[in-house]
Simulated assay, not measured.
Amino acid sequence: MEDTETLYAPRAGVRHPPQRHDSPPDSNGAVTAPGRRRMLHAAKARDDTRAGRTVSGRFGRLESRRRGRAGMSAATAAGRLGGNQTQISNIEAGRHGVSADRVRTLARLYSCGDQDYIDALVAMTGARTRGWWEEYRELLPVGLLDLAEVEHHATYVRVANMVPIPGLLQTAEHARVVFSAGIPQLAPYEVEHRVSHRIKRQAILHGDTPTRLTAIIHEAALHMGYGSSTVVRGQLQHLIDMGERENITIVVIPFGAGPLPGSGQSVDYLGGSVRQLDTVQLDSDHGNQLLDAEAHLVNYRSVLDRMESYALTPTASRDLIHRIAQSI
């Protein structure tokens, strides 16, 4: 497998889309010093706004639901806070961050007595920092960046895939074949940006406090010919190696297991520090979708539980992967 460190940033030497200047050049075609300063200032403002956008958006939706359950209008909430309705609207739309004190004030206002939940919300609002995924802001669809941000904050991850192999467990070579086969076809530099982004997402599985991962993989994914026999064997061996890590559990649903809930759909369940902060990610040809409504969370927990009940044990799954690898 390619060294992950070489894939941790957009690749040097790979052609990028043309860059746009926000300030007109001088007569020699160079951007003037005042123009450069304006560009840097504008870029910093954009970065400050974008940092933690998924976190702030999630917080805003949670606050909107809490206000609704409290039977309080935005105007009433704003009045009790000594502000105006626009401030409440901006918070609930994820446009503005909030302080820890404001989080606690809102909790009292909406009669929320769950201290663990309040503490988790405080931690969430303090997470508005520029993550590594922002390097890809102009290079990849925003949904991929949002997924990386949610994964970064997750305490555990459960995934279920029919095909292909889950992204968090793909080798660079396997991922490159997957992205190259997409429709519409991606340019080579677009493929490389997606590969490097995918490999960097996998950092959550390593380090001093690695995220727990349970991967439910259908046997069909193990037989798919993504790339040469060398690439396929390398991917299967990578699954075996990753399954040896204490924080990773890999189980396989064998052929003949019968009809499965959610057949054909990839599901990622990303656990928050409290259950109210869990998120579901659904992958499709039209891009990924993040869901966090309680009804969705309950439904997909049941879907994953049912799918896992059809799977072999981790030991039997490893043996099956090994037999398939030897047969290639």
Rank of each mutant, 00 (worst) to 15 (best):
Ser284Lys: 01
Gly83Tyr: 03
Arg66Ile: 10
Gly258Glu: 00
Gly234Ser: 02
Ser196Leu: 07
His206Lys: 08
Pro25His: 03
Tyr136Ser: 01
Asp26Trp: 03
Ala51Pro: 04
Val98Arg: 06
Gly143Lys: 00
Leu213Cys: 05
Leu312Tyr: 02
Arg318Cys: 09
Gly83Thr: 15
Met124Lys: 09
Pro188Cys: 03
Asp283Glu: 15
Leu312Trp: 01
Arg301Val: 12
Ala42Pro: 06
Arg245Asn: 13
Glu294Met: 12
Leu291Pro: 04
Ile217Lys: 05
Val252Phe: 05
Gly256Asn: 08
Arg301Cys: 10
Leu213Arg: 01
His152Glu: 14
Tyr300Cys: 10
Ala100Tyr: 04
Ala148Arg: 00
Tyr8Gly: 12
Ala325Gly: 11
Tyr136Asp: 00
Ile240Met: 04
Glu190Thr: 10
Ala325Pro: 10
Leu270Thr: 01
Ala181Met: 12
Ser180Tyr: 09
Arg275Pro: 10
Pro10Arg: 04
Tyr300Thr: 14
Leu169Gln: 12
Val98Ala: 09
Ser228Tyr: 11
Ile183Leu: 11
Gln202Cys: 02
Asp278Ser: 01
Pro34Ser: 12
Val163Leu: 13
Leu169Tyr: 14
Val274Gly: 05
Leu139Trp: 02
Leu277Ala: 09
Arg38Val: 14
Gly35Met: 05
Arg245Tyr: 09
Asp114Cys: 02
Leu213Trp: 00
Leu213Asn: 04
Ser23Phe: 14
Asn84Val: 04
Ser263His: 14
Ile250Met: 05
Val142Glu: 15
Thr313Lys: 00
Ala154Arg: 03
Glu5Phe: 14
Gly234Trp: 13
Gly256Phe: 03
Ala12Arg: 11
Asp268Gln: 08
Pro24Trp: 15
Thr211Asp: 08
Asp3Ser: 13
Asp278Phe: 00
Arg318Ser: 09
Ile240Arg: 02
Ala75Asp: 13
Gln87Cys: 07
Ala42Lys: 15
Val31Trp: 10
His16Phe: 06
Tyr189Arg: 09
